[in-house]
Amino acid sequence: MTDFSDAMSVATSGMKAQANRLRHVSENIANTDTPGYQRKTIAFQEMVENGRRSGAVETGRMRLDQTELTRIYDPANPLADETGHYDGSNVNLLIEIADAREAQRSYEANLKMFDQVRQMSSALMDLLRR
Score class of each variant (00 low, 15 high):
residue 7 A to N: 03
residue 18 Q to G: 08
residue 56 A to L: 00
residue 118 R to N: 05
residue 9 S to M: 03
residue 56 A to R: 01
residue 62 M to S: 04
residue 53 R to W: 06
residue 111 L to F: 11
residue 61 R to V: 10
residue 64 L to N: 14
residue 54 S to L: 06
residue 114 F to G: 02
residue 125 M to V: 13
residue 102 E to N: 12
residue 28 N to E: 05
residue 37 Y to C: 10
residue 69 L to Q: 05
residue 59 T to E: 06
residue 125 M to L: 15
residue 116 Q to K: 13
residue 47 M to R: 01
residue 76 A to C: 04
residue 27 E to F: 12
residue 64 L to W: 14
residue 24 H to W: 05
residue 81 D to S: 05
residue 66 Q to R: 11
residue 31 N to Q: 03
residue 23 R to M: 02
residue 26 S to T: 11
residue 29 I to N: 08
residue 65 D to T: 10
residue 52 R to Y: 02
residue 32 T to I: 15
residue 27 E to P: 12
residue 27 E to C: 13
residue 16 K to C: 09
residue 3 D to L: 06
residue 61 R to I: 15
residue 88 G to M: 11
residue 124 L to A: 13
residue 80 A to W: 10
residue 55 G to Q: 01
residue 46 E to V: 06
residue 113 M to K: 15
residue 30 A to K: 12
residue 107 Y to I: 14
residue 19 A to W: 01
residue 51 G to Q: 02
residue 112 K to P: 00
residue 127 L to K: 01
residue 70 T to M: 08
residue 93 L to V: 10
residue 32 T to D: 10
residue 33 D to R: 10
residue 99 D to A: 07
residue 83 T to S: 04
residue 107 Y to K: 05
residue 29 I to W: 08
residue 40 K to T: 04
residue 14 G to Q: 02
residue 4 F to Y: 01
residue 68 E to K: 15
residue 57 V to E: 13
residue 83 T to I: 06
residue 129 R to P: 14
residue 40 K to H: 05
residue 3 D to Y: 09
residue 9 S to G: 01
residue 23 R to L: 02
residue 38 Q to M: 00
residue 61 R to N: 14
residue 49 E to Q: 11
residue 100 A to V: 06
